[in-house]
Simulated scan of single mutants.
Amino acid sequence: MKPLEGIRILDFSRVLAGPMATQILAELGAEVTKVERPGTGDESRLFEPRLPRGESAYFFAFNRAKRSMTLNLKSPEGQEIAARLAETHDVVLENFLPGEMDRFNLGYDALSRRNPGLVYVSNTGFGQTGPYRLRNGYDTIFQALSGIMHLTGHPDAPPAKAGIPVSDMTSGLWIAIAILTGLVGRGRSGRGCHVDLSMMDVQTSLLALAAARLFALDEDIGRSGTEHPGRVPSAAFRCADGGWLHISGSDQHWDAICGVLGLDDLAADAALGKNAARVAARERVMAGMRQAIAQRDRGPLAEALRDRGVPAGEVNTVREILGDPHSEARGAVGTFDHPEEGAVRALRTPLRFVGYEDPAIGCPPPLGADTAALLAGELGMAAETIDRLRNEGVI
């Protein structure tokens, strides 16, 4: 048994944050029905990169283990179908601009009257209130506005985006948290709820440590590359063979770092045993470490540091970490079988259970593959009615 078996989610979200959340929940056992536009579906079905038979690897990354039905939400008949489906689901997720689901007669007020236990999550860029509520936004826009882009990169370089769509993906995790929290609350109170989840709010919440420095020191920090503003050493260093090694040490690691690197002068300065002194002497400490590490090859140095208990990690490429022995031992990469593309590699949902079945990698659905079965099985529609709806562009 999977832990979320029996939970039913009606998912109107598109592209990344919402689909990522419902993929996680689907592989944990929830039954997720993805509602898409007839003809084109989720726009990410057209995104790069493409697999050999033309399917979108982007779409595949966030839409596994779901059912797909097509439904024209601008059609009154399509709206009524969606509302009837919501009556038998535990969760509705949507990421339209504020007010748009109300215009479709599918807002929280309308659906909760038909299903008082409904957990309804609205994931928007800027939330249901505030002066920016009707703005569109993309991942990098949120990185820019939130300050994350200002903090990313090296001090002498322009702002940089994170290497992954961090705004979308962290929002996806918060959507999953919102859904699960709503379900737990419903289990205690018997009532559903509406969750207003702003991607901008999520990004602002990630500034916790940067905000702590502002609140405590009135310091509005900027880019620091791989260095930590409050701890020395914590940075990536270039090794003799051209590889990069990240070392992050606290007071208890300092003697070992000096011993492995042969930093006798720094080791002799007793004050440097405390992080505050190393932060104050940042340039001296970092210069000594850079010089010593530049003479050593990455692999042997990393092992020597780890043998002494020093946290050290090679700066890997994606290919390197996915082929790493530890990733292989943990089963980080698996496959699913797709009717068009055949066996496709994918990253596993990272939870492992004792007491429940582990999540398995599901297959992304072809567009509208489950529409007829859902209408017949869920709503009792006859084949003739389904054919009519298809011919009229409702499905």
Rank of each mutant, 00 (worst) to 15 (best):
G377Y: 02
F142M: 13
P158E: 09
S44K: 12
G127I: 08
V333S: 05
L301T: 02
R84D: 12
G355Y: 10
R113L: 11
E341P: 01
G309R: 03
P311A: 07
D358C: 13
L85F: 11
D265S: 12
E27V: 13
R188M: 07
K74C: 08
G334W: 03
L379V: 03
L71Y: 02
G18R: 06
G185S: 15
T170D: 00
T129W: 13
M381I: 01
P233I: 05
A208Q: 08
L173E: 07
G78Y: 05
N115Q: 12
L145P: 00
E328G: 00
R238L: 15
P38L: 12
P359C: 08
G380W: 04
K161E: 03
L214W: 15
R308T: 11
T33N: 06
G99R: 13
E320V: 02
A208H: 07
A382E: 13
L10P: 08
R298Q: 15
D264I: 04
Q128Y: 07
G29M: 12
L301A: 06
L183N: 01
G377T: 03
L71I: 12
R330D: 04
R388I: 03
A267W: 06
P159I: 14
D297P: 12
S205H: 07
R84I: 08
V260M: 11
A312D: 10
I247P: 05
L197S: 03
A382K: 00
P359M: 07
V260R: 08
H228T: 00
L4V: 10
G147E: 10
A267G: 15
Y58W: 09
A376D: 01
A372Q: 14
A372K: 11
A236R: 00
G225R: 13
H154I: 01
P366F: 00
R319H: 04
F126G: 02
R345T: 15
I247V: 15
R306L: 15
Q252M: 08
M69G: 03
M1E: 06
A312K: 00
I177H: 15
P359L: 08
L207N: 06
L261V: 14
N115P: 02
G78C: 02
A240Q: 13
E219S: 12
